[in-house]
Amino acid sequence: MAPTILYTACVGSAIALYLLLRPAPGSIKVVAVLLGLAAIGWVVKEAARAGEPGEAPVLIFYLFGLITVAAAVRMITHHRPIYAALYFVMVVLSSAGLFLLLEAEFMAFALVIVYAGAILITYLFVLMLARQVENPGEQMMQPEYDRLPREPAAAVMVGFMLLGVLGDMVLGGVGELPPSPSRLQQRLAAVEKLNLLPRRVEAAVRAELGRQTEALVLVDGDGRRVHLAGETVYVNVDGPGGIQQVTLPEDALPENIEVVGLALISDFPVSLELAGVILLMAMFGAVVLAQRQIELSDQEKQAAANAEAKAAQERGR
């Protein structure tokens, strides 16, 4: 894809976003939406044409991507903060879908639970806490600072310049990446992971052999139990009839969540602890910050002091 197409699309979508940010009549908004969609569509079309036929992502990626971008745009253009937060939930949900596409199931659900379920609810609570006092008679009107954006032109210009550069980088960069690991390499890596999980191996072998109770002796070969031959994963079991090779089923290999957990505690233990500390400190900080601080005027302080003195006098008497 030629960079000029990307830049032109950037300019177009920049104009669209600028128009959407400014308060404007509905017709202009429609034009802006159409302009933005056209820019995105053009880029997508050019991108699809650039790749090999089988390489393009599945169609559902485009669906989720479009929902994400649209929700994000709506989030920053909506005048009411509550709606902005809800649109952000939408962004989170659709990106969770993208995570699923990327075979990161655990992260997808964690994202929904933590972001949409916890963080966004906090935002909503705060939004409600900080709600403007409404005069009952007046028509519900958002405050001026929610309606009018600040310096949209400069912001959009800077942002889309950045997008142009980033897009150029991405499109030029992915071609130069080393090839993705092959299926065999991935299998080997999975077998290595499995070697770190002996109980899982044992359970799989027992299930395979149907021997639930007898002693099971797995033969070690240079520190490994699980081996890979071609596509088959097997273990050597020392049984009555000599050493027996047991092929493991595909689902004996670890799943995504197991791999993530393993990586967390084996590769990033310190980071995990630090994350815990950060959360703890954040909790303390939030508790301290959220305490209501009562500010007394001088008169009130004086009155309180007088009352105290009086009480002391009375006690003394």
């Binding site: 991108a47 790749g51 992502p57 991935q186």
Partner: peptide, 10 residues
Amino acid sequence: TISGHALGHY
């Protein structure tokens, strides 16, 4: 695996 082309989309 996903291709580099698909990665670019993401």
